[in-house]
Simulated assay, not measured.
Amino acid sequence: MRILAAGDHFVAPDLFARELTAEIGTDHTIDQLHLPWPLTPFGPVSEVDEASGDEDTLLAALRGARVCVTQMAPVTRKVLDGSPDLRLVVVGRGGPVNVNLDAAKERGVQVCNTPGRNAAATAEYTVGLLLATMRRIPETSAALTAGHWAGEFYTYDNCGPGLDGATVGLIGCGAVGSRVARALTALGAHVCLYDPYADPDTLREWGTPVDDLDALLRRSDVVSLHARLTPETRGLLGARELALLPEGAVVVNCARGALLDEDALCDALESGRLAAAGLDVFAVEPPPADSRLRTAPRLVMTPHLAGANISVAHNAARIAAAEVGRFLRGEPLAHRVV
Rank of each mutant, 00 (worst) to 15 (best):
A175M: 12
R182E: 12
G82T: 09
G325Q: 08
L328F: 15
P200K: 09
V223H: 07
M1S: 02
P13I: 06
G188P: 12
E139V: 15
P41Y: 01
A65Y: 05
P286E: 06
E139Y: 13
V111Q: 00
G207A: 03
R93S: 13
T295N: 12
E55W: 03
A61S: 01
P332Q: 11
A103C: 14
R179K: 05
A313P: 02
L129F: 04
V89K: 08
N100I: 03
P332A: 14
V250K: 07
E241L: 05
F16L: 03
E232N: 11
D8P: 00
P41E: 06
T295V: 15
P41H: 02
A183R: 14
Q32S: 03
V48Y: 00
G257N: 02
V222A: 09
A103G: 13
D85I: 06
W206I: 15
V191E: 00
P138V: 14
E50P: 00
T208Y: 08
M134G: 02
P38R: 14
V176S: 07
D14Q: 01
V191F: 00
G147V: 09
T114R: 02
L101W: 11
E205G: 09
L144E: 08
L4D: 02
R2H: 10
D31R: 00
A61N: 01
A166R: 14
P161K: 14
A277G: 03
D31N: 00
R240E: 14
D54E: 09
C112G: 01
I310Y: 05
A6Y: 01
A175Y: 08
V79G: 03
G95R: 14
L265P: 07
E139A: 15
A289T: 13
I30V: 14
V300R: 03
R77T: 15
G169Q: 08
T76F: 13
S83C: 05
L33R: 00
Q110R: 11
V97W: 02
V48G: 01
G162W: 08
P138F: 08
L129Y: 02
V90R: 01
L216G: 11
P288G: 13
P161H: 15
A320W: 02
A306H: 04
V48E: 04
P115G: 13
A198H: 07
D290C: 08
G165P: 04
F10N: 00
A121V: 10
V45R: 04
A317F: 12
R294N: 02
A142I: 05
A175E: 09
P286D: 07
I30C: 05
E50I: 10
V11S: 06
A275P: 03
M72R: 15
L170K: 04
L237Y: 06
T140E: 05
A181Q: 04
V89Q: 08
M134E: 05
D211Y: 08
L35Q: 04
R136S: 11
Q71C: 12
A258G: 10
G128V: 06
D267Q: 12
A65K: 03
M72C: 14
C173L: 06
A183I: 14
D195I: 05
L279P: 07
L244W: 00
R256A: 12
A249D: 05
I3V: 10
D261S: 04
T155K: 07
D199F: 10
A215Q: 11
L279C: 07
S311E: 11
S46N: 07
T26C: 01
A103D: 14
E106M: 13
E23A: 15
A120Q: 15
D56S: 15
E323M: 13
G272W: 11
A181Y: 03
L39F: 09
A175N: 09
G94H: 05
H34Y: 13
D280E: 06
G116H: 03
